[in-house]
Design a protein around this nucleic acid. Structure first.
Lengths: 139, 139
DNA sequence: ACACTCTCTTGAATCATTCCAGAAAAGGTG
DNA sequence: CACCTTTTCTGGAATGATTCAAGAGAGTGT
């Protein structure tokens, strides 16, 4: 399930290849939209042990390099995903916080134009759909 | 400054009319997109003193009643605005965190349709434009 | 293998927000 | 207007997510 080799990805961005970084990339490949805690748990399964701070550091480094994307839906701790570069959007369940991907029709950022920009230079339009997921809808 | 009378707004929602609530509504009318701390400071100018917890409680009560809207841009503490009910969107400066309103072309939520909904029932599409504000662009 | 630099570990601090129990105040009623 | 019920406000403490700091440890190019 880890198609693009984590080590290769890291080298392409001139980042050092370390076991925690590989474990975090693998964790995110298996668990899209995972929060820091879930990533840390998954990484620990692979490594035995990693400090929580290392996971935070790794995630920040990967996000800065553009290898992962940090998403922060209102009311939820930060979540991360490896799917980058396609400017897709998210749909969040108001009840359980579950997140699903929604492809962007345009594909490139910014995919929407603002009617008034107030002099701002806009580089991205982030869309978050809010609703109820199938499971929470039935209960 | 405070166009619709705060007391009237509160009564319309069957909320008790208290001095902290009026002060918070006035503060938000004067400072759109203010965070809790700014609201508390503004409210203290009007009242002399209010506990921070009262401000949190008031903001939650007002948000639940639909009198104010809570917005939470990634990386920023929660901010509040007197709700207009027009489903407008926001443009956030990546550098200074400043927020401006952007009218929604459609007006009613959800103003966008998701291409795939994964079985979710969508009730709102929240759009956040990211960019650089005029001041930060020049510096 | 060596040296240089970046990354990881441990431990503590910070910020925003929430929880709790009791005191005070708002609104309806007689 | 005084009373009573319910809701709200106060003060203090707790929680959760995230960040800071200093030193030990590991990756990379020569």
């Amino acid at each position: 399930m880890h198609h693009p080799d984590p080590s290769t990805l890291l080298r392409e961005k001139s980042l050092r290849v370390t076991r925690p970084r590989i474990a975090v990339l693998n964790a995110l490949a298996d668990h899209p939209h995972a929060d820091v805690d879930s990533v840390a748990r998954a990484a620990r399964l692979e490594l035995g042990s990693v400090s929580t701070q290392a996971v935070y550091d790794v995630l920040r480094a990967l996000a800065e390099a553009g290898l992962v994307r940090r998403i922060e839906p209102a009311g939820s701790p930060a979540r991360f995903e490896v799917r980058v570069g396609d400017n897709h959007h998210h749909i969040v369940c108001r009840t359980c916080g579950d997140i699903a991907d929604v492809a962007c029709a345009v594909g490139e950022a910014p995919c929407l134009d603002a009617s008034e920009n107030h002099g701002f230079v806009i580089d991205e339009a982030e869309v978050t759909y809010w609703g109820t997921c199938p499971e929470c809808a039935t209960t």
